[in-house]
Amino acid sequence: MRLDDAEVETMAGELSGILGHVDRIRSLDLEGVEPTSHVVHLENVLRADAPWQSMPPQVALAGAPEPFEGAFRVPSPQADAD
């Protein structure tokens, strides 16, 4: 993601304000507390091993901004590629 100079200036001030508030939790003594990443206790779930209908290629590509011959077209990763 790119930010222009004006965005950087505005955002620096805003993020400093937010982090200043968030910093309050850094001083809490939570040694030994287990972190919670998820509230529902989950185990790995596997789908039944049965064939199912996958997304047809023309549908997967229908929303793509620049599909090309049945594939997603991506610009060259190198500048001046052509």
């Binding site: 929303g63 060259s76 990763p77 190198q78 590629a81």
Partner: peptide, 15 residues
């Protein structure tokens, strides 16, 4: 790449 807006599609990937 897969959906939605694309800008600078003629430039390089990072751009």
């Amino acid at each position: 790449v897969r959906y939605g807006l694309r800008e600078a599609g003629d430039e390089d990937l990072i751009e």
